[in-house]
């Protein structure tokens, strides 16, 4: 399989287009449902941090889900079954990268599905799809 990878965060200019287009997959604008996040590394002068699911082969977020709403995906990462999710946020806490975001509208986690849509809108080759596990 393939995963979305942060190739070089030093090239990131902080435009956040990846965040906007990720959200737009669901049809609307804004950033509520974005599964990727760009923030400064302690002030814009220090550059940016790009936070996204790394598709763990053995994902801790799935292990702490009390309702099996998060299922480990073959090859890494997880798939969410929203009908089982009770919104406990255990998964958010379990991810050391804090790469699980929260959709306040639906009260459900937002999890990267590694579709690569954001890669097409990264003007500076910060992001790429790569074969995974390496």
């Amino acid at each position: 399989m393939k995963r979305l990878a942060v190739i070089d965060s030093e090239r990131c200019v902080g435009c956040q287009l990846c965040m906007f287009v990720c959200n737009s997959r669901f049809g609307d604008a804004g950033l509520t449902k974005s599964a990727i996040k760009v923030r400064s590394a302690g002030g814009i002068e220090r550059g940016f941090v790009v936070v996204v699911c790394r598709a763990c082969p053995d994902a801790p977020c799935a292990s702490v889900c009390p309702t099996n709403a998060l299922v480990k995906r073959k090859g890494g990462g997880v798939i969410l079954n929203p009908s089982k999710c009770i919104g406990c946020m255990n998964c958010v806490e379990a991810c050391p990268f804090r790469a699980i975001f929260w959709d306040v509208e639906d009260n459900k986690p937002v999890i990267c599905v590694h579709c690569g849509y954001c890669v097409d809108y990264c003007p500076h080759e910060v992001l790429a799809m790569e074969v995974w596990p390496r």
Binding site: G27, D28, A29, G30, V104, E105
Partner: peptide
């Protein structure tokens, strides 16, 4: 904030988004 921003015409949204992006880059 992280409120959703609704659009009216989703198909056109993607099309115009791409057009503007390509022109700028």
């Amino acid at each position: 904030g992280s409120k959703i921003v609704r659009v009216k015409n989703r198909k056109l949204f993607r099309e115009v988004y791409r057009e503007i992006y390509e022109q700028s880059i």
